[in-house]
């Protein structure tokens, strides 16, 4: 159901949510937008966080032998590209990893779809930024907030003005007018195993792993014992130890590992889960120190190779 809320209504909605959840939101800090605990709707800054909010579900580093009781958290200000990351990862992880699953079930993400596509971003290529799946979505149309809620959150909207789909449709249309929709569909069939792109990338990549760490859909982790704990830590498929075993290493070379990252996103996940493991947030491209641009993997003319 969709509702039209004023700024005052948003404050009321926030306080209703605050009764049930610990509230977090995007705030500006030393020039960056970060997630912090917030007490009121007015403290929230509209804008994309420096880092994807995947840490709310997958911590950088934690002891898997100790599953804590999860607090109920509400997180305001999530960009749609980052939110979509959760729905995409759910397909592989939800119900299997107890940490991710319990946090997912106890976290309410309130996403703020953008009105114009950000520079570099290509979320519209993956159905963004007004998504089909969300918990509570807060779109802005002039001074109005067009808030959509999935069923289980309807009770928070008592007394607010209901509305239809027209404004959402208008916002989507306006967004798409100036959006760079990439020809993603079918990339799993066009991409080439022996493409010269992989060696081109490996000749400059410094194996820093930033592309994985910044990505809202990269879920891989490592497990190792330290002191009394068994630590799960974010891992990167770009690093050479990722697949080394006593029997050898399937991806000894950097170009093979870079190819793996793109194949996982555009081929393997599509085959196994029916979706691309990318939401078009462009974070990997922005954070890459040597300017490797994932959009090229989509737009490259493989047929001429």
């Amino acid at each position: 159901m969709n509702y039209i809320l004023t700024d005052e209504d948003m404050k009321i909605l926030f306080s209703r949510i605050k009764e049930e959840y610990d509230t977090y939101g995007t705030v500006e800090k030393e020039g960056d937008i970060v997630y912090e605990k917030v007490d009121g709707f007015e403290s929230i800054t509209f804008g994309r966080s420096r880092y994807a909010p995947k840490e709310f579900l997958i911590e950088r580093n934690e002891n898997v032998l100790n599953l804590p009781v999860q607090q109920k958290k509400a997180v305001f200000g999530v960009m749609s590209c980052d939110l979509k990351g959760f729905y995409v990862m759910d397909k592989q992880i939800l119900g299997k990893d107890p940490f991710y699953t319990q946090r997912r079930q106890n976290t309410l993400f309130v996403n703020f779809p953008c009105n114009v596509e950000c520079e570099g971003g290509f979320c519209s290529s993956f159905g963004g930024p007004l998504l089909d799946e969300f918990q509570i979505q807060v779109a802005r149309d002039g001074d109005d907030f067009i808030v959509s809620a999935s069923k289980e959150y309807e009770h928070l909207f008592d007394g607010f003005r209901k509305t239809g789909d027209e404004q959402i449709r208008k916002l989507r249309k306006n967004f798409l007018k100036n959006a760079k929709q990439l020809p993603v569909e079918g990339i799993e069939n066009r991409i080439k195993w022996d493409s010269k792109l992989w060696k081109k990338y490996s000749s400059v990549c410094i194996s820093c792993g930033a592309c994985n760490y910044s990505c809202p859909t990269c879920y891989c982790f490592d497990l190792f014992d330290q002191d009394d704990g068994r630590i799960r830590e974010w891992d990167s498929c770009i690093l050479s130890g990722f697949t080394s075993t006593s029997a050898g290493n399937v991806r000894k070379e950097l170009d093979e590992r870079l190819r793996q990252r793109f194949y996982h996103k555009f081929v393997y996940y599509r085959k196994s889960q029916g979706e691309y493991l990318c939401t078009g947030c462009n974070r990997c491209t922005e954070d890459c120190p040597v300017d490797i641009d994932i959009k090229e993997v989509v737009t490259h003319d493989y047929s001429s190779e």
Binding site: Y100, D222, L223, T243, Y268, K271
Partner: peptide, 20 residues
Amino acid sequence: LERRMECGIGVCGHCNVGEF
């Protein structure tokens, strides 16, 4: 097939063989 495995439950991403 032997692959590097960390989790054993399909969530750590280490053991892929193509889409599996």
